[in-house]
């Protein structure tokens, strides 16, 4: 196979990945009643209808709160665990790492069933709490993997310098380590939020009746008929989920540029 053929193949693979996404965004601006082709005109009406749809707005609120809380808890746990793995000589490191990523090695359906049945047995019924616990356990390994990778790049001697100048470990953590950690923490939190915001497999098992997140709301709407509002919602979600990481990268770039400018002064 020549290089040219590989090049064309790659372009086709990228087209395959992006075509469906482009179609959703395109259709969300379609004026037609039916949410499908042909395009009859460009309009924002489905976005307007979307923001008047109570069910969708409620799902959006649930997803946002759930995602933010998940990110908060998962990132806290994940950053602590990553610090232990990167900064210390932990005995049984491999075994511990495997345990920490176990939630992604177990198929999500199995995780969902196990957690649901166990907590139900303990008297915790399908509820927001169950959803939150599920999302935390499912996102934790991803946070640990991402934060650990970022932490490797932080040099330890800066902290040691602070301590040798008389700062207490707690002072050192808050005034030296944490600021240096910020990009890693932000990356972990963003990852946790996005995964939580997108999760449907576990969520369908854990959510109480009547409560919907954005993905389960879309899933429920798909079962009836395709309404053009789904396209607008899909388009919006593409912008949120694809826009957030790009925003995150822009911010971390801005921070590092600002930092290097400060250092230059």
């Amino acid at each position: 196979m020549g290089w040219r053929a590989i090049q064309i193949w790659t372009v086709l693979v990228y087209l395959f990945m992006f075509l469906p996404i482009v179609v959703v965004v395109l259709l969300s601006f379609n004026d037609s009643q039916f949410g499908s082709f042909p395009m009859t005109g460009v309009s924002l009406r489905w976005f307007e209808e979307l923001f008047q749809n109570e069910a969708i707005l409620r799902a959006l609120r649930t997803s946002l709160i759930l995602g933010l809380l998940t990110a908060l808890i998962s990132t806290t746990l994940g950053v602590l665990a990553s610090l232990a793995l990167v900064r210390y000589n932990v005995p049984f490191r491999n075994a511990i790492s495997t345990v920490l990523i176990a939630p992604i090695l177990v198929p999500e359906v199995v995780l969902a069933v196990a957690l649901l049945l166990f907590l139900q047995f303990l008297g915790v019924h399908k509820s927001f709490t169950l959803l939150l616990l599920g999302h935390v356990i499912f996102t934790l390994p991803f946070v640990i993997l991402v934060v650990q990778a970022r932490l490797m790049g932080i040099r330890r001697d800066v902290e040691e310098a602070a301590m040798s100048l008389g700062a207490s470990p707690v002072q050192t953590f808050f005034s030296i380590t944490l600021p240096l950690l910020t990009p890693a923490v932000a990356a972990g939190a963003l990852f946790a939020f996005t995964i939580s915001f997108d999760d449907i497999t576990g969520t369908l098992f854990w959510k109480p009746g009547g409560v919907e997140t954005v993905p389960t709301q879309i899933f429920a709407m798909l079962r009836n008929s395709i309404s053009p509002e789904i396209n607008a919602l899909g388009s919006l979600m593409i912008m949120i989920t694809a826009g957030l990481p790009i925003l995150g990268m822009a911010i971390s770039r801005w921070l590092s540029v600002r930092k290097s400018r400060q250092q230059a002064k």
Partner: peptide, 12 residues
């Protein structure tokens, strides 16, 4: 990008 949206998009 949302898994459910990507799956759904094949319908279009």
């Amino acid at each position: 990008i949302s898994y459910i949206i990507r799956t759904m998009s094949w319908i279009y």
